[in-house]
């Protein structure tokens, strides 16, 4: 189960509302490489993990991603508070406002709503860990792009924190992949799945 901590993982205090930035940053809530997909990806994949280190890692990183989802929502919430009609129109926020007012809705910067196709859960330890490594890099690139578009230090500070976390998660998933690969047959150079490719269990060529 999960228990809520009434605290953000890293503080978010944005003094100046900015609906234009909110429309970009919401992509890390419900976009293709956002935190909603990240949490659902790892928390769904963990049941197929055959080793205790990996069950723990997917559970813990999946949980941390829920905390990042909360930070991104807090950013969007604070960027869209107390808006005037002029700010809504000039910030390009009017279409979102008509659909959702200033409610938090999972969508990409390109307006596409969140889709389950953003995540993979293949039931194979090697396949899923490779997806996770790629997902962390894609999320890191998205934070890089956001950081390029932002000047407000109140917004940059939590974005930089979140970017760093993608790098740390990538590192941990890399160690997870190494742990999994080490438990394959030492001659299993191509890291095929011994539960499917019986030849690789015997250390033969397929």
């Amino acid at each position: 189960m999960w228990q809520y901590q009434k605290n953000l993982q890293y503080p978010v205090k944005i003094r100046t509302p900015n609906p234009k930035l909110a429309k970009l940053i919401i992509t890390q809530y419900g976009g293709p490489d956002g935190e909603l997909g990240a949490s659902m990806r790892y928390l769904s994949q963990r049941y197929a993990m055959p080793y205790p280190e990996l069950k723990a890692l997917l559970s813990d990183i999946g949980t941390e991603e829920l905390g990042h989802l909360e930070m991104v929502s807090a950013m969007v919430y604070q960027l869209t508070r107390n808006l005037s009609r002029e700010q809504i129109e000039q910030g390009g926020f009017a279409p979102y406002f008509v659909d959702h007012t200033a409610g938090i809705y999972p969508q990409a910067a390109s307006d596409l709503p969140w889709r389950a196709e953003y995540i993979g859960s293949k039931g194979d330890v090697l396949t899923d860990l490779h997806e996770d490594l790629a997902a962390e890099q894609k999320a890191r690139t998205t934070y890089d792009n956001l950081i390029r578009m932002v000047d407000d230090p109140d917004v940059l500070d939590p974005l930089r924190f979140l970017r760093e976390r993608e790098i740390v998660h990538y590192q941990r998933f890399g160690e997870g992949l190494r742990l999994a690969a080490e438990r394959l047959n030492s001659k299993n150079f191509y890291a095929c799945n011994p539960s499917y490719d019986r030849a690789c269990k015997r250390g033969e060529k397929i």
Partner: peptide, 11 residues
């Protein structure tokens, strides 16, 4: 938290 994640892969 950071040390706990590290310990997952370095128990």
């Amino acid at each position: 938290w950071e040390l706990e994640l590290f310990l997952d892969t370095h128990p």
